[in-house]
């Protein structure tokens, strides 16, 4: 019997309690439990995480690099979304 490729899972780690989850890499596993256990062995051998998320790679939806400029364009001309856009007196404290 020829070898079947095992499904690929993406691994996200929370480095410490309260922090955002970050992508760590991926791995092969047949089911959720194995994916979590493999993620622990592969990505947290030195206490890199307090919690792990795994999700099948095929379930990740990504924007495409070719459309990068048009996709993110709406944010391009809205400088008023930054605090430095507004001029206020230096005497005003706590802003």
């Amino acid at each position: 019997m020829s070898d079947k490729n095992l499904p690929i899972w993406e691994v996200f780690l929370q480095p410490k309690t309260g922090a955002s989850f970050q992508h760590a890499g991926n791995l092969h596993a047949t089911d959720e439990e194995m994916a979590l256990q493999n993620a622990r062995e592969l990505y947290t051998r030195r206490q890199e995480g307090t919690c792990i998320w795994v999700v099948k790679t095929e379930h990740i939806v990504s924007s495409s690099p070719e459309d990068q400029s048009s996709f993110f364009d709406p944010a391009d001309d809205k400088v008023y979304r930054y605090p430095t856009f507004f001029k206020v007196s230096k005497k005003a404290k706590g802003l």
Binding site: M1, D3, K4, T30, D31, M34
Partner: peptide, 19 residues
């Protein structure tokens, strides 16, 4: 390791969270 990979895939197919 072939039988291990086959068994893990078969188990996954039979359980809810499988492939």
């Amino acid at each position: 390791g072939q039988w291990v990979r086959e068994a893990a895939l078969a188990y996954a197919e039979k359980t809810q969270n499988g492939v």
